[in-house]
Amino acid sequence: MVINIPRPRKRRRIGCRPQFQNFGPHGPNCNKEIINLKIEEYESIRLMDLKNLDQSACAELMGIGRSTFQRIYKEARGKIADSIVNGKRLIIETEDFDHPGGKGHCHRHFQDNNQDN
Rank of each mutant, 00 (worst) to 15 (best):
G78D: 01
M62E: 13
E41R: 02
I14G: 04
C106W: 02
I34Y: 00
D112T: 15
N4A: 14
K10D: 03
G63T: 02
N86C: 03
E41M: 11
I39C: 11
I3H: 14
R17F: 07
V2P: 09
S56Y: 04
E75N: 09
N117C: 06
K88R: 14
R71P: 04
R13F: 07
P25K: 06
P6I: 03
L90S: 05
K38R: 08
F69D: 03
I72T: 04
I80Y: 05
L37S: 08
I45A: 00
N114V: 12
E33A: 08
V85M: 06
R46M: 09
C58I: 07
I39E: 06
E40L: 13
L61F: 12
N117L: 14
E43A: 11
H109N: 04
Y42A: 07
S67Y: 10
F110C: 12
I92Q: 04
P25D: 11
H107A: 03
A59S: 00
L61H: 10
R66Y: 00
K88F: 03
I5R: 15
D112Y: 07
C58M: 03
K103E: 15
I34K: 13
A59T: 11
F20W: 08
D96S: 11
D49G: 02
M62H: 01
F20G: 08
I91C: 05
A76L: 02
K79V: 01
L50W: 03
K88H: 05
A81Y: 15
A76Y: 00
I64G: 04
Y42L: 09
Q21K: 15
M48D: 10
R108C: 07
K74P: 02
D98M: 07
H105F: 11
S44V: 07
D82W: 05
I92K: 09
K51N: 10
L61S: 09
P18Y: 02
I45E: 07
N22R: 15
I5P: 12
R108S: 01
E43T: 09
K88Q: 11
C16N: 11
R66C: 04
C30D: 13
N22E: 11
